[in-house]
Structures are given as C-alpha cells and as structure tokens.
C-alpha cells in the first residue's frame, strides 16, 4: 500500500487544460458551466465501433487517461445507449453493423447527439462503400459533428464532443490542424 500511495503521490496531478477557447469551435473557457447550461447535468457518451480498424478506439480510450481526464470535465462513457446523451461513432459502418447501429441510435433517448469520429466515420475513408461497407456514419444515422483524422488525436476528439454540445443539431466539421 505504501508503494501504491508513494507512486500516486510522486506522479501528482498531470491533467492538462482541455482544448480551450477556439472561436471557430465556439467553446467558452468554462467548460463545466457550458455543459451544465446545455445538458443540465453530466454528459454521458456511448461509444459504438461500427466497423473501424480499432485505431480511433485507441485514441478515444486516451480521453480517459489522467492527461486528458475527460471525467474531470463532467463527461463520462456509459455502458448502455439508454443512459447516453451522445453517441460517439467510428466507421466505416459495415453492413453487418448497420442494424446494430440503428437500434443503438433508437435506444438512445431524445434529445441526442451524434459525433462521427475519424476519416472513415466522416467519409468512409480508405474502405469506401462496397458490398460489405455502407461508408460514412451519416449514411446510416443523423450526424451532428464529424471529426476527421486517421486517427484524430484525443484533443481533436474532445474538441468534437465539445463542439457538439455547444452547437447542437448542426453538422459541423472540426478541421484537422
């Protein structure tokens, strides 16, 4: 136990400030306040891999690490779409996942938001559309924000999530910088 506490103490708090007041993304400095004003409570995300290569999932995982510390912003990943306010979807949507994705979308209570992650989620990417792939996420369910990148960095994914809750119902593309 002593070693565990020492290790925790030695590392300390490593959380970095979240991607800040980017005018283009209309994110104010006080994220906590802004999320509360729109959602009125913590934001719950359900992630769905609808056919990705798993690259985007690795970067989505990183949001939970102490450096990005997404839970510190009042945002958390949940296990059921019924608990979610926002769906974070990676693609391309395989035809075998099309029904599962639709059902997950329908199981999510309104009002809901959808953020498509990665080049494949935005456009179908290198896989495109074929007998087994329906391409981009927007071909299957409505999308509010699309974050390109292969894979996009954790801070771009976070910027995409924050953009979605700051300007709901509009399709926005978070530019890759």
């Amino acid at each position: 136990m002593w070693k565990l506490l020492r290790q925790t103490g030695c590392v300390g708090i490593v959380t970095e400030p979240p991607p800040g007041s980017d005018e283009a993304l209309r994110i104010a400095d006080s994220l906590q306040l802004q999320i509360k004003s729109i959602i009125g409570r913590a934001l719950c995300i359900r992630q769905i891999d609808a056919g990705s290569c798993n690259g985007c999932e690795l970067e989505i995982h990183a949001l939970n690490n102490p450096v990005y510390n997404i839970e510190g912003l009042g945002i958390k990943f949940v296990a059921s779409p019924r608990h979610a306010d926002l769906l974070l979807v990676t693609g391309p949507v395989s035809r075998s996942m099309e029904v599962a994705l639709r059902r997950t979308y329908e199981a999510t209570p309104d009002p809901k938001l959808v953020v498509a992650i990665g080049d494949c989620g935005c456009t179908g990417g290198i896989f495109g559309e074929n007998y087994a792939s329906t391409g981009r996420v927007a071909n299957v369910i409505p999308v509010n924000v699309a974050v390109p990148g292969c894979p996009p960095s954790p801070s771009r994914i976070l910027a995409g999530i924050l953009t979605a809750i700051s300007s709901p119902r509009a399709i926005t593309s978070v530019s890759d910088n």
């Binding site: 891999d49 056919g51 391309p92 075998s96 599962a100 290198i126 896989f127 007998y131 087994a132």
Partner: peptide
C-alpha cells in the same frame, strides 16, 4: 464474429 467485415480483400 464477422461484424466488422468491410470488404478489405476485395478493396
């Protein structure tokens, strides 16, 4: 398995 089959070999 097979849910993420996206036609890679044909592609």
């Amino acid at each position: 398995l097979g849910y993420v089959h996206k036609g890679i070999e044909q592609r």
